[in-house]
Nucleic acid binder design. Sequence first.
DNA 1: TGCGAATGTGACACTGAGTGTCACGTTAGC
DNA 2: GCTAACGTGACACTCAGTGTCACATTCGCA
Lengths: 201, 201
Amino acid sequence: MTGAARPRPPTHTRDIARAAVRAELAHVAFELFSRDGFDKVTLDDLAAAAGVSRSTFLRYFGTKEDAVLAAYDGHDRRTADALRARPPAEDDWTALRRALDTVIERYHEDPAGSLATTRLVRETPALCARHLEKQHGWRPALAEALAERAGTPGDVTVGHTVRAAAALDCLNVALDHWTASDGRLDLVDLLDEAFAALTGA
Amino acid sequence: MTGAARPRPPTHTRDIARAAVRAELAHVAFELFSRDGFDKVTLDDLAAAAGVSRSTFLRYFGTKEDAVLAAYDGHDRRTADALRARPPAEDDWTALRRALDTVIERYHEDPAGSLATTRLVRETPALCARHLEKQHGWRPALAEALAERAGTPGDVTVGHTVRAAAALDCLNVALDHWTASDGRLDLVDLLDEAFAALTGA
DNA sequence: TGCGAATGTGACACTGAGTGTCACGTTAGC
DNA sequence: GCTAACGTGACACTCAGTGTCACATTCGCA
């Protein structure tokens, strides 16, 4: 019965400030990584460039990789929510394809920035690996959303998981080609093509 | 014109000995990891347990993770070869499914060992991540094999890549369920179910 | 307005992974 | 037997990531 149970204080001021600092740190980090290469930049470099201590930087981002990959935070929840919002009668593939529009949106909002980020991630083995790992974590959320759509929440079948995974593959492959084309190819077309290759083959 | 161009000396004795040492090191490492947990075991522990120096251990396996994941070496090449060996008329899905029998075989040869390895990998974030990364590297080889089957070697389409990726997902999801069932469920059935969820949905 | 607690930050020490280098001993080829 | 290549061990080094501590600021509350 101590005052331990206070997860959210009355004021959100701190949280807002914290988010702003986080964004600024991510920005500085991205600039350095792009200029010098991810591996060449040390945590000390980042801290110095951002004007904070190494400790502080690591408090905002647990790892060097996270400073870049934070850009993808929330994609899983948003996609899962979009999936749940699709008409219940819609088949899984269509629902997944439409849910991914939520992700694609972000790329259309800032094509140049998205392209630069994607390119950095794909070209840096450490980032690529960590991104793969994080994205792998999206799978359960999507599979669960599919199970809910099927009217059996909590009962995630092999099928739900496989389809969720395949949909993420489609996204990745489409992004690979989009990046390789320097953003000239249409992301929507690429994603449609990827899904088509899956459903009708 | 110096004697630099001699990639393979007359005798293979060294290579054979090297492979044996490598296998022994992997075995010792696996025992330690299983007993104490991957993260608790340091490179010094491994070296001491194997009776070699830390340097030597790192020469055989570039990273701690590789000492475990070396078990999967060659799976990509074998699967791609199996894919190329399938009848040209066979559709991609069937060919992929059959090619994965090559991988499944290994699990039937030593179910207990495979189960232990798979479990260790899935339960250890660092191993899971590294495995994901390595397996991601199989994709191009499989996609290229599909392109060759299509009579267009070198021309890897979005479809080839997506189907290769999806097939690997099927393998992973099937293995997840197999591991979760302590090896009681049939791996072949699980893999069939995964592919079925993909092709007919 | 002032007090106390929580919180953000910096400084520091520490562990452990991975890299590179060098010297030594063994082994293989001639 | 001589020589060159190779495997190994012993270091030293960099850097990521963790944990701890003290200090300062800020917020909640009286």
